[in-house]
């Protein structure tokens, strides 16, 4: 797969939400096996970390991922949204987590912006971040590889579905705008401006009257 091509995230997130837990578990386990196979130093470096379980919480998915590091075998499993027992937790949206994993965004920058939350053993999280950033990972490539000879077809299909989904989303948004025009506030604003103009005109007239009266009184005194 073209490394620069974006992962069809909306499709991925939608699929990950509706698929049965067992299927998601099987895919994530296969994904990890693929990553460790294509990046042999990744396994070595993950094993060198302090032994720990890290929960990766995608804020827009109904479950968590649990990764064990610091001992063989390294595992990646799907656990319940409210699962406990982690030594550390990392939370962000799916899109942010994928960008992090594929090296498109800096984790410290996310932390400064408060778009990434960490809790528990900070050393483990820092170590995991550094070990992953050492590799040039591509989830899209790994997912395509999982599909074997049908990988290319799956990629094209995924992209087509993403385009269709984007297009449908845009049409729905347009329909929503038609049914719920955002003009209410603007109309109120226009009315307010008109009222202001009328008040200014009235005040100007009043001022003119007062000015004339003052002038007449001044002439009378003179």
């Amino acid at each position: 797969m073209d490394r620069t091509a974006p992962l069809p995230l909306a499709l991925l997130r939608g699929t990950a939400t509706v698929l049965p837990r067992a299927v998601i578990s099987a895919i994530t386990a296969a994904l990890l096996r693929g990553l460790l196979k294509t990046h042999p130093r990744l396994l070595e470096n993950l094993t060198r970390l302090e032994p720990a379980i890290v929960h990766v919480i995608a804020s827009d998915l109904p479950y968590r991922f649990a990764i064990t590091v610091g001992r063989a075998p390294i595992t990646l499993t799907v656990v319940d949204r409210i699962a406990t027992g982690a030594d550390a937790q990392v939370s962000a949206s799916v899109a942010t987590l994928v960008d992090l994993l594929e090296g498109r965004i800096d984790s410290d920058t996310l932390f400064f912006r408060r778009d990434l939350r960490i809790a528990g053993n900070t050393a483990v999280v820092v170590g995991l971040r550094n070990v992953l950033d050492r590799e040039e990972l591509s989830i899209a490539n790994e997912l395509e590889a999982l599909c074997g000879p049908l990988g290319g077809t799956a990629r094209r299909l995924a992209r087509a579905l993403e385009v269709i989904a984007d297009s449908a989303g845009a049409r729905l948004a347009a329909m929503h705008r038609t049914l719920h025009p955002p003009g209410t506030e603007a109309q109120d604003l226009t009315a307010d401006v008109r009222r202001c103009h009328e008040e200014i005109a009235a005040l100007t007239a009043r001022l003119g009257t007062l000015e004339s009266r003052r002038k007449r009184q001044a002439d009378k005194i003179a």
Partner: peptide, 15 residues
Amino acid sequence: APASHVAYEEIDGRV
């Protein structure tokens, strides 16, 4: 500030 001695806690949106 070694990472082994750093901890974050989130309370009501404050960190």
